[in-house]
Amino acid sequence: MSTSNFVLFLVSGGLAIVGAIGTVASRKPLRAAVALLLHIIALAALYLTLHAELLAALQLLVYAGAIVVLFVFVIMLIGPAAEVPSNPRGKITRLLSLVVGGSVMATVSFALVGHTAPRLPMLRNEAGENIFGTVEGMGVAIYQQALVPFELVSAALLVAIIGAIAIARSRTPQEQAVVVERQAERIELAAARDAELAQATAKVGS
């Protein structure tokens, strides 16, 4: 890794961590959204250090351009003044979670120190050129190598959309009509059953 690349890595990596902490720690939703934006941009810069230029551009377009904007819209809709109530947990619980989280982080860092990732063969096209990170490379990776996971992701996105609709949508008038009809049927049924029961009881009584 060249020096300039290393500096870019340090700066963008640091900013990504700052952004991530800001996202979960800030009480004002709008600030959290802006911190998320910082994190996403820093992540795009990290992709650049890995020579994944297309991925970096897509990251900016999709996440920074579309998703964070959507978040901000929603926050504005709810009201930007909305604030998260302060953490109701006691000091001891918070301290404990800090200790546990810190020790996990320390262990992972310890495991990572001095580790060099294995060298993998580069993705090459038929002419033997290195196509990693280019549009061509992305196309080969998604539509030739990882075709099955790619199709499965569409199922994952579909189920997320349907789930969102299932939770958010209210009944249509037609559905409401069916519900009312069914309720009436059940009330009729119950009345008939009650009458039957009363008749039977009367018979036993006499």
Partner: peptide, 8 residues
């Protein structure tokens, strides 16, 4: 009853 449940 809503159709989404079955699709989920």
């Amino acid at each position: 009853e809503r159709g989404e449940f079955y699709i989920l």
